[in-house]
């Protein structure tokens, strides 16, 4: 891409012929009046989305047959750039003939694909993809008006990247499954953040509820925690970190060894644990009757070591100090 990116001003050259045609002559621009809807035996739905201050606003008119929920006619008006006009025009076209529920399934991705001249070449450049998102949002708005429900109840899931329609769960899953460590990797795997880049981090094109940098950080923290818990709970002594090993050793000592020593009036404490050359060296100090006992360097020591081998791992060596 580098060679093609070095000359600027190619935004419009990346529009498909279909996009250009629809900017110049939108087929479904205009309004539907109450009278026109009535003549069709339909209910008029008028939905507004966006704002001038944000650079994009669209109004969608639907004439919906109340018996079948079918959209009999659709028109739009737009305050928006060329790609917003073309996307709104295609969105209106795609919604016609569908039921309201079917129309709700139209996404900006489908709108963009329908505007392509051929299957492989995108209809609009990446930084314009967010202009097509309005087309999706206004459908949701119209459907919520028709159904008399809150718009948020129609949301299937939390969308992080509107341009590529990638949800929060997908992004978290991809980070976990592929052990992703950078935002760039998330974009490579999911396309999230590849278009208007608003969802990458705060301070971009528009404000977002979720940002990839935050999702990545939080997911990595959660993954790290889970790993620690898993290690702590695991039976595999070798996989534990030093603190977890210490706990496991104390547990084995407390359950299996100290009671036996106590029967003879003795005890022990752990002074240090050092890992070296594939061995776990446990330095202990005898207490009570064990201190100075002849067996403490022979039989008792053997007993302690054997018990720890049995309970924890073969590579444990117990060293009295």
């Amino acid at each position: 891409m580098a060679k093609n990116d070095l000359i600027g001003g190619s935004l419009w050259e990346q529009y498909s012929a279909k996009v250009s045609e629809r900017i110049n002559n939108p087929m479904h621009r205009g309004e539907i009046s109450e009278a026109e809807a009535k003549a069709l035996g339909a209910r008029l739905v008028v939905a507004d989305w966006g704002a001038e201050a944000c650079g994009d606003a669209v109004r969608l008119y639907w004439a919906v047959d109340p018996k079948t929920d079918r959209i009999l006619a659709a028109k739009f008006k737009s305050f928006g750039c060329g790609s917003a006009i073309a996307s709104s025009d295609m969105m209106a076209e795609l919604s016609m003939g569908k039921t309201v529920d079917q129309a709700l399934k139209i996404t900006n991705i489908e709108v963009e694909r329908s505007l392509r001249d051929n299957a492989e070449t995108p209809a609009i450049p990446p930084q314009k993809m967010h202009c097509s998102v309005m087309a999706y949002d206004v459908i949701k708005k119209a459907a919520s008006i028709y159904k008399g429900v809150d718009m948020s109840s129609l949301a299937e899931e939390d969308i992080v990247c509107e341009c590529a329609r990638v949800g929060l769960r997908t992004i978290k899953d991809v980070i976990r499954i592929n052990d992703l460590k950078t935002v760039e990797e998330i974009t490579q795997y999911t396309k999230a953040g590849a278009f208007c880049k608003s969802c990458l981090r705060p301070g971009g094109h528009e404000k977002r509820k979720y940002y990839l940098v935050d999702i990545l950080r939080d997911t990595r923290i959660a993954m790290e925690q889970e790993k620690l818990f898993a290690q702590a709970d695991a039976d595999d002594f070798a996989a534990k970190n030093l603190i977890q090993k210490h706990r496991a050793i104390e547990k084995a000592l407390g359950e299996k060894i100290r009671p036996a020593l106590a029967a003879d009036g003795g005890s022990l404490e752990v002074v240090d644990i050092r890992e070296a050359e594939g061995k776990v060296n446990i330095y202990i100090r005898y207490l009570g009757a064990c201190k100075g006992c002849v067996s403490s360097t022979k039989g008792t020591l053997q007993f302690i070591e054997n018990m720890l081998h049995q309970e924890l791992a073969e590579n444990i060596r117990v060293i009295p100090v």
Binding site: L11, N24, C54, G55, D56, G80, C81, A84, P125, Q127, K128, C131, K197, G203, G204, H205, E206
Partner: peptide
């Protein structure tokens, strides 16, 4: 442009920031 007049806009629609 389609009607032969070249002008420019400061509109930030495709820019990184709004």
């Amino acid at each position: 442009n389609a009607n032969g007049v070249a002008a420019s806009t400061g509109s930030a629609c495709a820019s990184e920031s709004l």
